[in-house]
């Protein structure tokens, strides 16, 4: 059904360009990982990009060395604390509402303006991650809106359509969302027990089907042959608490060590992100 409130373009559906060399290329040209397994990419974080909001932040994760691979770019604005809508029931603490949206031009496929299920999913995970960090009872009867626009997704433009890629991209996006939202919340002056940051770790197979999988942090799907599993962790460093854990993939249940190893690496990635976050916040108040 056409959305009459927007300009929808031609009646017939349009198709994204198909490139002539799509068939000549291999299904996936692997660029090997350019960083050590436990190194995250460089991150740029800045607060105060939206002066009209109560708090805001912008996060950019450096493009990996290969051209064509875009880095993640996120813009987050926080509005509130503000009064709840009249229809809302009484709440003795702050009501958190999160909203994550990809820009139409953020990914290889053009995104629509309506939120799709994966974006809703990101919003729910983000809310869970932040709820554990906010001191909610300081603000009775109020609400806060956290809105993240994914200006550019973490996707390789060169590689052709890959199955399952999106899933791993969402992990990286969520990690970034958590970090940028924490910066924006601190900028807005909403009480938090700690600065929460997101980190991603993945179990990858780099050399064929039978090779021994390794655990890496901050994975870029195009740099690995196959990602078996990944987890995104929201972690409070001074409290040593995990507020949200999102695990996806296929791991044998017998191998608990592998699982804990993955979580530990995720925490390590989160700590790396937290260092950037703290540096950015220290800059903000000076």
């Amino acid at each position: 059904m056409a959305d009459r409130r927007r300009i929808n373009g031609p009646a017939g559906a349009t198709i994204p360009p198909v490139f002539d060399d799509a068939s000549t290329r291999g299904p996936k040209s692997i660029k090997s990982r350019s960083r050590p397994a436990n190194a995250t990419r460089k991150m740029y974080l800045k607060t105060g990009v939206t002066p009209s909001a109560s708090g805001s932040a912008y996060l950019e994760i450096e493009t990996s060395a290969t051209p064509g691979v875009s880095g993640l770019k996120l813009s987050c604005s926080v509005h509130g604390p503000r009064s709840l809508p009249r229809s809302a029931p009484f709440s003795p603490h702050i009501v958190l509402s999160t909203h994550v949206k990809y820009a139409p031009f953020a990914t290889k496929q053009r995104r629509g303006y309506l939120r799709d299920p994966s974006e809703r999913d990101l919003g729910i995970h983000l809310e869970a991650a932040l709820r554990g960090a906010i001191i909610a009872d300081r603000w009775p009867k109020s609400g806060v809106d956290i809105i993240i626009s994914i200006v550019e997704g973490d996707q390789d433009r060169e590689t052709s359509q890959l199955q399952g890629d999106e899933v791993w991209d969402m992990m990286n996006a969520l990690g970034g969302c958590i970090t940028v939202a924490a910066a924006a919340l601190a900028d807005a002056g909403i009480d938090c027990v700690d600065t929460v940051a997101g980190g991603v770790a993945a179990l990858v197979q780099d050399a064929g089907e039978d090779s021994i999988p390794t655990v890496v942090v901050d994975p870029i799907p195009s740099e690995h042959e196959k990602i078996l599993a990944a987890c995104c962790i929201a972690y409070l460093p001074t409290r040593d608490e995990v507020t949200n854990l999102w695990f996806r993939g296929d791991l044998p249940a017998s191998d608990i060590d592998l699982y804990t190893n993955l979580v530990e690496k995720g925490i390590q990635a989160s700590k790396n992100a937290n260092r950037v976050l703290v540096g950015c916040l220290a800059e903000t108040i000076q």
């Binding site: 927007r6 300009i7 373009g9 009209s52 604005s77 509005h79 909203h99 820009a103 303006y113 809106d145």
Partner: peptide, 30 residues
Amino acid sequence: DYDLLVPNIELATGSAPQFLPGVPPTALAQ
């Protein structure tokens, strides 16, 4: 005739307190 140019403006990105997402585009955005 073939509608080859499709501009759309999204204000509901939290760009200002009155433009919050989750609602259809405001009259201003339209």
